[in-house]
Lab assay of single mutants.
Amino acid sequence: MLDDRARMEAAKKEKVEQILAEFQLQEEDLKKVMRRMQKEMDRGLRLETHEEASVKMLPTYVRSTPEGSEVGDFLSLDLGGTNFRVMLVKVGEGEEGQWSVKTKHQMYSIPEDAMTGTAEMLFDYISECISDFLDKHQMKHKKLPLGFTFSFPVRHEDIDKGILLNWTKGFKASGAEGNNVVGLLRDAIKRRGDFEMDVVAMVNDTVATMISCYYEDHQCEVGMIVGTGCNACYMEEMQNVELVEGDEGRMCVNTEWGAFGDSGELDEFLLEYDRLVDESSANPGQQLYEKLIGGKYMGELVRLVLLRLVDENLLFHGEASEQLRTRGAFETRFVSQVESDTGDRKQIYNILSTLGLRPSTTDCDIVRRACESVSTRAAHMCSAGLAGVINRMRESRSEDVMRITVGVDGSVYKLHPSFKERFHASVRRLTPSCEITFIESEEGSGRGAALVSAVACKKACMLGQ
């Protein structure tokens, strides 16, 4: 009897593995994704193909990295998701002549009506938060230079001027797309009239992360975010950046690689679950690469896999709870928690219980395998993109072996128990001629924006502006 049951459990697990095998990517698959990513990057950089390229390769006008001589107080704003952060950054000489960066910050959550109302409502709310922060720190009387981390696709015309191309991540505030974001912020500050600010720089969160990590390690020339969304930036040779005049030196390019796949480059790798996630998203047909990796989508992918296993009578005796059938019910943090389970399955059992399920031991094991399959594919897909960037940098610099540091931020990278190990191992397999160091950014977005502002202020002083 026991043997029969054991055989049935083994057969069930084997069927589960057959279904989950769809998520496995072979090294040849990853090399294919990497080569296609490089081709799209090239198209994004070139003037004649930029418009139709899915990977936009947006110039950021960040050319210099901090040298350690900029000092002063800077205000930093960070808008990239449902939370908005205001930070005071003091850049100065530390002990023994070292450079020191001290920060104080406060988080504000953005109400739904500000995210989806008008641009005026959104930026009025942001300036209200700045006003509140300055009151708390008794700094209303000071006109501070301000660095703005704005983590949406922007076409820069200068370091302090950028046109919002399109909202992502659930934002829909009308009247912002096609307009200068810094102008919208300046107008809102003017409307309030109770404080003055000098907006000197606007950067993407990947750029802010790279600059913040450069402060720790001067070989950091790539910034990457794996959180709600997924994106990367890197220092490109100016001669390859056709959208900006000049051939000397390097400029940081914001790849906006989340949109890779929007022209069909990933079609052969998309599964039924991916198509369902895409169809029910706020932007169907867009940001397809990001939807395979980002935390906004990972939990939902797992939920759809679990429903398939229920329908195949391989999980929960073929019956799903009402909660499990509800879109968004299986949160991405559950994926991390399930994979963090120590082996007694308590954590998995508790999560499934909150979803109205009474799982068996085998159910718990199957749910864990589903989570591992989805998150491992995410790590491997992400590795193909980064390997594409790094191999490109090595080739354009004609280096036999390139040493490089990548600064990384984002909740999936930082909080998932195995993502970074799987990701690092896969990147290294795909970049055999590179020695890569990964560092995690601390308060990256805010500190990085302030350091970019410090560079901009120093330049302005040198130019006598």
Score class of each variant (00 low, 15 high):
Ile366Cys: 10
Val389Ser: 03
Cys382Met: 03
Arg429His: 13
Glu372Asp: 05
Lys458Ala: 09
Pro153Arg: 01
Glu242Asn: 06
Val89Arg: 05
Pro284Ser: 14
Arg369Ile: 09
Gly448Ile: 01
Leu357Ile: 14
Arg7Glu: 04
Phe316Ala: 13
Gln347Tyr: 12
Ser398Val: 11
Pro59Leu: 03
Glu442Arg: 14
Gly44Met: 01
Ser433Phe: 14
Glu27Leu: 10
Ala201Cys: 11
Ser76Thr: 03
Met298Cys: 11
Gln26Thr: 07
Thr82Trp: 00
Phe123Tyr: 00
Val253Pro: 01
Ala320Tyr: 09
Asn204Pro: 04
Glu399Asn: 14
Thr354Met: 10
Asn180Pro: 05
Ile130Lys: 01
Ile293Tyr: 01
Val455Met: 15
Glu177Met: 04
Leu30Ala: 03
Met41Phe: 10
Glu242Trp: 06
Ser418Met: 13
Ser426Met: 12
Asn240Asp: 00
Lys104Pro: 05
Asn179Asp: 04
Lys12Met: 15
Ala53Val: 04
Val367Trp: 08
Asp274Lys: 01
Ala425Asn: 09
Glu319Trp: 12
Lys346Phe: 11
Arg303His: 03
Trp167His: 05
Gly448Thr: 05
Phe84Glu: 03
Cys371Gly: 10
Asp4Asn: 14
Lys459Glu: 15
Arg36Trp: 09
Arg250Cys: 01
Val154Glu: 01
Glu70Arg: 07
Asp194Cys: 07
Gly80Lys: 05
Gln106Glu: 11
Thr405Glu: 15
Ser375Met: 08
Met34Cys: 09
Leu309Ile: 08
Ser360Arg: 11
Trp257Tyr: 13
Asp187Arg: 03
Gly178Glu: 01
Leu58Thr: 01
Asn83Pro: 03
Ser433Glu: 09
His141Ile: 04
Cys364Val: 09
Glu248Gly: 11
Lys15Val: 10
Gly446Val: 09
Asp400Thr: 09
Gln239Phe: 15
Gln98Arg: 13
Thr228Pro: 05
Gln287Asn: 06
Ala282Val: 13
Glu51Tyr: 09
Asp341Ile: 09
Leu122Pro: 03
Ser174Gly: 01
Ile130Ser: 02
Arg392Ser: 10
Gln337Ser: 10
Gly249Tyr: 09
Gly147Glu: 01
Lys291Ala: 07
Phe195Trp: 02
Gly464Cys: 06
Val16Gln: 06
Val367Thr: 13
Ser383Gly: 13
Val374Arg: 00
Arg422Asn: 12
Arg46Tyr: 07
Met57Ile: 02
Ala320Phe: 14
Phe260Glu: 05
Leu306Cys: 06
Val427Arg: 02
Asp132Ala: 08
Leu314Lys: 08
Glu399Lys: 12
Phe438Gln: 06
Leu88Asn: 11
Gln26Pro: 14
Arg392Leu: 07
Thr149Asp: 04
Val310Ile: 03
Val302Glu: 05
Asn83Trp: 06
Glu196Pro: 05
Leu2Pro: 06
Ile110Lys: 01
Cys233Asp: 01
Val367Asn: 00
Phe195Val: 12
Asp42Leu: 11
Lys136Asp: 14
Arg377Met: 00
Gly249Pro: 05
Cys364Phe: 07
Leu164Asp: 01
Asp409Met: 03
Val277Tyr: 04
Ser441Met: 04
Arg192Gly: 03
Arg192Phe: 01
Thr376Lys: 08
Gly178Cys: 01
Glu245Cys: 11
Gly246Leu: 06
Tyr125Ile: 05
Asn283Gly: 11
Val406Thr: 07
Ala425Leu: 08
Glu245Ala: 15
Met224Arg: 15
Lys140Met: 07
Asp344Lys: 15
Ala449Pro: 02
Lys136Met: 12
Glu372Thr: 08
Cys252Leu: 11
Phe133Leu: 05
Asp267Phe: 14
Ser426Trp: 11
Glu27Cys: 03
Asp42Trp: 13
Ser360Thr: 11
Gly464Gln: 12
Glu399Ile: 14
Leu415Phe: 11
Ser360Gly: 11
Glu14Met: 15
Lys140Ser: 07
Ile404Phe: 11
Cys252Thr: 15
Glu290Ala: 04
Lys459Tyr: 14
Gln323Leu: 11
Met462Thr: 12
Val253His: 01
Ser174Gln: 07
Thr228Cys: 01
Glu112Gly: 11
Glu177Gly: 03
Met402Phe: 12
Val89Gly: 01
Arg308Ile: 05
Met462Ala: 12
Tyr413Pro: 03
Leu146Gly: 01
Pro284Met: 13
